[in-house]
Design a protein around this nucleic acid. Structure first.
Lengths: 350, 350
DNA sequence: GTTAGCACTCGAATGCATTGAGTGCCAAAG
DNA sequence: CTTTGGCACTCAATGCATTCGAGTGCTAAC
């Protein structure tokens, strides 16, 4: 079923005008302002009739009998799916994203931190970057670094160009020389193994090498057993205070809800993932507070896109703001940023 | 000058009652409730006279002519300096801090994250931990880990048991074998050097070793030059959303001010440091919004304490909340936590 | 199908009286 | 000289009635 066909040309342009006006003014929009906005030769009364139809069909909503109208979830959804035309970024903005991202090219971690910063800076909203999915990361290199006789830093460089540090304590003293040999052993045997399966992989390979390198393998196994199990994908946030700029969060309770959401990283990841799942063939997805995947937090909207390393999508980025967000601008931003990030990370991993 | 002598016994106990009542109720306190609170055989009228004196002396304040009174900065200051008796933590709370901190004993970074979490959890306020001052950190061990032919991870374990990762890109390809030799060279020559002076120290020692190990030293120098200069001490925050629970931050503008402060890490570090400087011989310091060192953010209070590695104070922890804070409880918490943290980090570094 | 006109609705703003917690002050008591 | 009871006074908060105005819904005419 093509919802696009449901609305007449006039209804479409009026819905569009309502959304756009509401987004900029944050106030319910009336028939007169619509006429002004469209510059058309129709009277407010006509607009009122159409708006009434749109309300009946569930696209608009009145806060009280004699007020202007405001888009409903359905109205926003229609707008972002069919009416919005993505507003290109300016050349300056593109250039800025490109230079400020490539500056930090060295370090995947820093690239992602900087990405969230840029998203926030340019959109004046909250920028979100979810780090590459741990489950796809593979071991590029392992290093064991003695800290004290019993404490050892296990350093794992993964296929995304990130370096992770875990510190493990063992019962008995380990000599630096031994750690050096174990390191070499691990690098010879574990490159390309999924990071999550480091310990279990080693167990498997142990069987093969058990005779010749029994001692080394034992030691390595002991160390890797101590690694904490993988936490959920890292998340980078920036610009959370921009939320305070919007009138919908004047009420502290509302603001609090959103801040609570942002503190629960798994929930944020969950939302972004849901967005990816529901996404059509578009590169960006828009999630609206109140819709199925966003139970529990109304009032917000998220523009999200996935980024890839090579051809494989590995994580999400997004911009979170009030549901009343300038989607056309933000969509362009998120789309372009995701493309740039993909390119950079691919180069880093390659 | 001993300010303690300035006030009569009655004035002292009434000031104390005002602060305590105001802290729990968040409402201006009147003469009747004070009488009830103190359970004394004096009449409200007497209390009113005394309160009037206290107001004239600047310890109390009326919001409007016919309302109850509220402590001023000076009033709070007197209270925390002379009237407050620290309320011991319960055994359960002590036990909790101890077990939940020692659990993560391995990793200084995690210990500090956990510390901020505990501070927030137990106080129901915002917990702050400032990582050990970078300027005192010394190199314990260095490792170079090849990521690609041109990208190298420089790993530095410092004397506080932390491991830092920097990724540097060099112009020309570096063989793993070479990096191994450079690593050994660095560890032989740079242990104990202040982390900040890594690059310059190497330059100095280069002159000595220039003949025999010219090539190695050159290579090492090139890599270390690329390290980013040290950013200010890391900061760990937790429980920022607790701020929303207090009526003083019902007004979004107020809340926003504090969140902005918390986003500017250097400013937070600056406040804590100022606290350390002003501190008397007490182990904890209390900073009150509006006072000299806290220009620009009213309405908040901070209880801070320094922690040490060995005998040397290296960083600060604190709890931030509304100025109307239960200082006696929070002070006990911060004090005990700082002691525990010192003990753990000393053990880690030792 | 579109428009002008008009009655109607309802939130927001304004004015006004009431209430009550709390003070300041004074004169009397201790 | 300190303390107390009494009393007038102040001021925020509350409730209520009124007004104002943006905006609608409806109907009759175009």
């Amino acid at each position: 079923m093509n919802r696009e066909a449901d609305l007449s040309e006039r209804e479409r342009s009026i819905l569009q005008a309502v959304v756009q006006l509401y987004v900029t003014t944050a106030e319910a929009v009336g028939s007169r302002s619509i006429v002004k906005r469209l510059g058309l030769e129709i009277s407010p009364a006509t607009v009122r009739n159409t708006m009434s139809d749109l309300e009946e069909a569930g696209y608009l909503q009145q806060l009280h009998t004699s007020s202007g109208r405001v888009p409903t979830d359905k109205g926003y959804r229609y707008y972002v799916d069919y009416l919005m035309h993505v507003q290109e970024l300016t050349i300056q903005e593109r250039a800025r994203i490109e230079t400020e991202l490539t500056e930090r090219l060295d370090d995947a971690d820093q690239v992602m931190r900087q990405t969230s910063h840029l998203l926030a800076l340019i959109s004046h909203q909250t920028g979100i970057v979810e780090g590459p999915d741990e489950s796809d990361a593979r071991v590029n290199r392992v290093e064991l670094m003695p800290l004290t006789t019993t404490r050892t830093a296990v350093l794992i460089a993964d296929s995304y160009g990130r370096v992770r540090t875990h510190i493990v304590t063992s019962d008995r003293a380990l000599e630096a020389e031994l750690l050096g040999r174990v390191t070499r052993f691990l690098n010879d045997n574990l490159r390309g193994v999924p990071v999550e399966k480091l310990a279990s992989s080693l167990q498997t390979r142990l069987r093969i090498f058990v005779d010749e390198q029994h001692h080394l393998a034992e030691e390595a196994s002991r160390l890797l057993q101590l690694l904490p199990s993988q936490r959920a994908g890292q998340i980078y946030l920036d610009g959370t205070t921009h939320l305070f700029e919007h009138p919908e969060f004047r009420d502290v309770e509302r603001a609090r809800e959103v801040f609570n959401l942002l503190e629960e990283r798994e929930r944020v990841v969950g939302l972004l993932r849901a967005g990816l799942r529901d996404s059509t063939n578009m590169r960006t997805t828009i999630l609206l507070g109140g819709e199925a995947s966003m139970q529990g937090v109304d009032d917000i909207g998220i523009v999200a896109a996935s980024y890839s390393v090579g051809d494989k999508p590995v994580g999400m980025i997004g911009v979170l703001g009030p549901r009343r967000m300038p989607y056309s601008r933000v969509t362009a931003l998120v789309d372009y940023t995701a493309t740039m990030l993909s390119r950079l990370l691919t180069r880093l991993a390659g």
